[in-house]
C-alpha cells in the first residue's frame, strides 16, 4: 500500500485528479524564486496558473546548484544578487496562496538553505505559507531522516526524483516515502541540457508505473510545446523549467533588470506549452 492512500487528500491530489479527468497530461512549471527581482518574481508566480500551469515549482535559490545547467544557474545568481532569501521565498508563497487556494506549489532546491533555516521551523513556516510539496535534489532516500520523514509528518508531500540510473532493484526504495507524484528525470545529466527521447521516456514511465500508483511527471530536456506534447503523451505530465527562466533572461534590459515584457514573456510561453499538453488525449488508465 502506498503512503498516499492513507494520507488526506492534498491540493496536488485534487489538481492531478482534475487534470486526469480532462484526459490530458499536466503542465508543471518551474521558475526561480526572486528572479529577476522579488516583485517581478511574485508577478510571474501569480501569472503561471492563469496561463495554464497546473502545478508550480518554485526554486529556492542556492549558491551551488550542482544539478543545474547554465539557465537555472544564471537564474539562481540573478535571484541571489537581487537579495532573495528563504524568508522572502516563503513570503511569496503566502502572497500567492492568498489569491489562489487551488494550485499546488512545490518548493524545489537543495538541502543546505533549509538546514540552515532549521528543519522544524522551515516545515512549520512552509506549511503555514501554503506549500504542498518539496523536491530536494541532494536528499536521496538514504538520508530520509533529515527532511523527508519530518515533512510527511508535517503534511507536506516529498516528491522524489527517479532517474535512468534508478534500476528496478532500487525503485522501491526511491518510491517508498514518495508522495504527490514521482518526478522522472528523463536524461542522465543536468537541467537544460539535451532533449528527452519520447520512446525511451515511455518505457521508463511504464517501468516506474509497475512499482507505484502515483502520477509520473517527466522533466529535464522539455523546452517546447511540441516536446511537451510528445513527452506528455507518454506520462501524467511534463515539467518545464530552463526554457521559462531563459524567457525571463531574454526579457531583461541591458543591466539585467525586468522590463514590461518580462511577466508576459513567461506567461506567453506557458500558454503555448499549455496548449501543447491540452492537445494530447491520454488513454484512460485505471
Amino acid at each position: 500500500m502506498s503512503p498516499s492512500e492513507t494520507r488526506p487528500v492534498t491540493r496536488i491530489d485534487t489538481r492531478l485528479a482534475a487534470v486526469r479527468a480532462e484526459g490530458r497530461p499536466a503542465l508543471v512549471t518551474f521558475v526561480t524564486a526572486g528572479d529577476p527581482d522579488p516583485e517581478t518574481s511574485l508577478a510571474i508566480l501569480k501569472a503561471l496558473p492563469k496561463a495554464g500551469a497546473d502545478i508550480v515549482e518554485f526554486g529556492m535559490p542556492f549558491s551551488d546548484p550542482m544539478a543545474e545547467g547554465p539557465p537555472i544557474q544564471a537564474a539562481t545568481l540573478r535571484a541571489l544578487k537581487a537579495g532573495q532569501t528563504m524568508a522572502k521565498t516563503l513570503q511569496m508563497v503566502r502572497a500567492f496562496r492568498a489569491e489562489d487556494d487551488g494550485t499546488p506549489i512545490v518548493l524545489m532546491g537543495y538541502y543546505n538553505p533549509i538546514y540552515s533555516y532549521g528543519v522544524e521551523r522551515f516545515l512549520a513556516d512552509a506549511k503555514a505559507a501554503g506549500v504542498d510539496g518539496l523536491i530536494i535534489v541532494d536528499l536521496p532516500p538514504e538520508e530520509d531522516d533529515e527532511l523527508c520523514v519530518p515533512a510527511l509528518a508535517a503534511g507536506i508531500s516529498f516528491i522524489r526524483l527517479a532517474t535512468p540510473t534508478t534500476d528496478d532493484r532500487r525503485l522501491p526504495a526511491v518510491l517508498a516515502n514518495t508522495s504527490g507524484f514521482v518526478y522522472y528525470v528523463s536524461i542522465t545529466g543536468i537541467t537544460g541540457a539535451g532533449s528527452a527521447d519520447p520512446t525511451r521516456v515511455a518505457a521508463a514511465v511504464a517501468r516506474i508505473k509497475g512499482h507505484t500508483d502515483l502520477p509520473v511527471m517527466v522533466g529535464f530536456g522539455v523546452r517546447t510545446p511540441a516536446q511537451a506534447a510528445a513527452i506528455g503523451a507518454n506520462a501524467d505530465g511534463v515539467v518545464v523549467g530552463s526554457a521559462l527562466v531563459d524567457a525571463v533572461r531574454d526579457s531583461l534590459d541591458g543591466e539585467g533588470r525586468a522590463t514590461v515584457k518580462t511577466v508576459a514573456a513567461v506567461a506567453d510561453l506557458v500558454g503555448a506549452l499549455s496548449a501543447g499538453v491540452r492537445a494530447v488525449r491520454l488513454q484512460p488508465t485505471g
Binding site: M66, A67, Y111, V137, D138, L139, P140, E142, E143, R160, L161, A162, T163, P164, T165, T166, D167, R170, V174, V185, T188, G189
Partner: peptide, 20 residues
Amino acid sequence: ERGHFGIFGGRYVAETLMPL
C-alpha cells in the same frame, strides 16, 4: 555503514549519482 562520523559525512547527492 552510511558514511557518518558522528553527525557529519553522509551521502547527500542527486539520485542519478546514488546508484554509482
